[in-house]
Write a protein that binds this DNA or RNA. Structure first.
Lengths: 395, 395
DNA sequence: CTTTTTTCATTGACAGCGGAAAAGAACTGC
DNA sequence: GCAGTTCTTTTCCGCTGTCAATGAAAAAAG
């Protein structure tokens, strides 16, 4: 939330205006009446919030219109004009940067993946600046202006301060990334935790639209979880939340690198699956693709490994659901490639353990390719941007 | 939140006023400057919110004052005048009603426990009305007027509608308790889930004061959990949350009545402990008191049972902490009597499983006798009351 | 003993948000 | 063209919370 500009004074959009803006963002072309219903504002308030946003050009009336009601004055839906502002979303992993150029509707225009030249902040910063310049050129070519940059990093991130408190993969501690990147690029930079950023994107644009309580579970190299409670992304009291990777699932389970036994990650994350497939088959399985192939070839030993992993994931999800009672759980991550193998285990363990709540909670899968993480970072930038729009003149 | 009055129109206190009111409630005698700091309102706004509340008499200036600052104009702290309104809090269990008469500061003036004459809604209602009349007489004697009634019931409760959706212990389904009790007594009745009510009371008056994210874990006949996230008590999307009793802790654990294996409750709740103590010793242990005695007599077999239970509780707490990252976990419930036996297990399992977060989260115990549950119900009533105060005249 | 400094609280002017109600606008159907 | 319906805007207004200045009460300084 730190800006590159010398003073930090952020001109605030009115609460109603940003509420309306995000509602329009999420609910596509939407009539003013419908906005009023969703936001619980009066129709007059909606009109007054929409007008200045249209004057500036961020909202436009949707001429296409859809199916008209049979009767009464036809509605005049509005939507966000994506082209009016561009954003860059950057996801930093332990060994690469994924960056996207996105428009105001958070549609991905271009994506880039570049390997990290090093993990030290200076090296990462250089890589960020490089990819950013690349995308800025791209933006110029399109003829749009980049209004903000979002950076997503795994670990403990203080978004309000724009500081990476601790990132295990990068081995960073207390790096004021927003400020550094902001001064280096002259752009407004927002930094947030990667899972939270992805969760926000799903909340605004994905399978979480319109929900006030849901969970997003990512399965892959690690197992993570983003939460939305009361319509807000949960950060935890100390910036850490959704750490389901180390939920204690089985006291007799395999040893986890965290020192504990039977963590979800020690059973169901990629390395664990690979390890178990090797152990079960005795074959020198090289990678997950090979493991998947064996499973698809109906090798019962390998399928059992996946089934067990699915069960662990299902138990983790059940834990989240028991604790928070969300309306939906979105399962995603690279691990989704093997979802057919996980599915039965997940569903079994989930319905069994989410005692009496399982029926009320909807399990959904959603393939979220790697660029989606960068898109989440862009969504974070868009959120900051919305909060900083200056509105003037109404009558 | 349903009132007995024919129309449901609830005159709303302004947001700022109720914010200030609850701040004063929680933070005892507090200066206006401090209120401004905590609520992030301007000092002018605080003055304007406090004045009408003082005029009505709910707030008073605290003449006692405490330690003065050495320098500058002395502050003029305000506090809530408890005597200006009384409330009844009622907790309904499977076989008894616990009721308290509390003042506006939620201090318990009188407590009553009466056995239920039956579990059918009509029988329970009759018991509620009886105990209520008893407490109303008491209130008359004191010379105070009861302004609201809160009823706490375990299970799925829709507070906004005042309906008990499903209560396993009472075997109720969709009982509009607030409306029924409201018309029967002519008082404003609020109904809420019991754990949420207790959590709210702890948030306002107990170990959760000033925290925006914490968890309250109750250990006893069952194991439950109330959550506060973003400063609000969590209800879940469908009115159910905090069900940690059936977190899947151990796939090889004992069978739980929910049909699953290794639920926390199947290891650490009172019946489970009793069962395990009997099995471990081969003695016909009659009740928990006896089991406790054996443990205190240093019987290693019995102590092992408690240790195991503590471990299960610790794992459950670790799950909550991993998922939500609260600032504090408050452990309470009747099971606290054996806390010395649980303690090591809880702490071990917790620090082991709450990977990297344990240090940031503070474990506290708090003995909450049964009346506290009823007090929670009273707090719910007070919350409704605050929201319904009509303010007029300011200048 | 007066003046200055410091902190707490209040006042009054004021911008502007958001609501209520009514008017206007656009379309269908008769 | 008129009635009916639905969506949107307009006008008016109350009310809220902020700003900046002022008042109040004490200790410290001169």
């Amino acid at each position: 939330m730190r800006s590159a500009s010398p003073n930090e004074a952020v001109p605030a959009t009115t609460p109603a205006a940003s509420l309306v803006f995000t509602t329009v963002l999420s609910h596509g072309p939407i009539t003013r009446t419908e906005i009023a219903r969703r936001t619980k504002l009066s129709s007059a308030a909606v009109t007054k919030a929409v007008r200045p946003l249209m004057e500036i050009g961020y909202l436009v009336e949707d001429v296409g219109e859809g199916a008209r009601r049979a009767i009464g004055r036809p509605a005049n839906p509005v939507r966000v004009d994506g082209s009016r502002a561009l954003f860059v979303g950057i996801k930093v992993t332990g060994d690469a940067i994924i960056a996207v150029l996105a428009d105001l509707c958070c549609r991905i225009l271009t994506a880039r993946t570049v390997p990290l030249s090093g993990r030290r902040p200076a090296a990462v910063l250089a890589d960020i600046v490089a990819v950013l310049h690349d995308l800025l050129t791209e933006a110029d070519a399109i003829g749009g202006r980049v209004r903000g940059v979002g950076i997503a990093v795994s670990g403990d991130v203080d978004r309000a301060e724009g500081v990476v408190r601790y990132s295990p993969f990068l081995e960073w501690r207390d790096i004021p990334l927003a400020e550094i990147a902001g001064t280096a690029t002259g752009l407004s930079v927002t930094v947030d935790n990667d899972v939270r950023a992805l969760t926000r994107a799903e909340h605004w644009f994905g399978a979480g639209v319109g929900l006030s309580d849901f969970a997003l579970v990512t399965v892959g190299a690690g197992i993570g979880c983003g939460l939305v409670v009361h319509g807000r992304v949960v950060s935890g009291a100390h910036g850490v939340a959704g750490e389901i990777g180390h939920l204690p699932i089985d006291p007799q389970g395999p040893l986890c690198y965290c020192g504990n036994r039977g963590c979800v990650e020690a059973v169901a994350a990629d390395p664990a699956i690979l390890r178990d497939v090797r152990a079960a088959t005795g074959l020198p399985v090289a990678d997950l693709a090979e493991a998947l192939e064996l499973a698809r070839g109906a090798d019962p030993r390998v399928r059992a490994v996946y089934a067990r992993a699915g069960e662990a994931i299902g138990r983790a999800i059940a834990s989240v659901v028991n604790i928070l009672g969300p309306e939906r759980v979105i399962i995603s991550g690279e691990g989704l490639a093997a979802y057919d193998l996980f599915a039965a285990g997940i569903r079994d363990a989930f319905t069994r353990s989410a005692f009496g709540i399982a029926e009320q909670c909807d399990l959904t899968t959603r393939p979220l390719p790697f660029e989606e993480w960068a898109r989440g970072a862009a969504a974070t930038a868009i959120q900051s941007f919305i909060g900083s729009i200056t509105l003037r003149a109404t009558t």
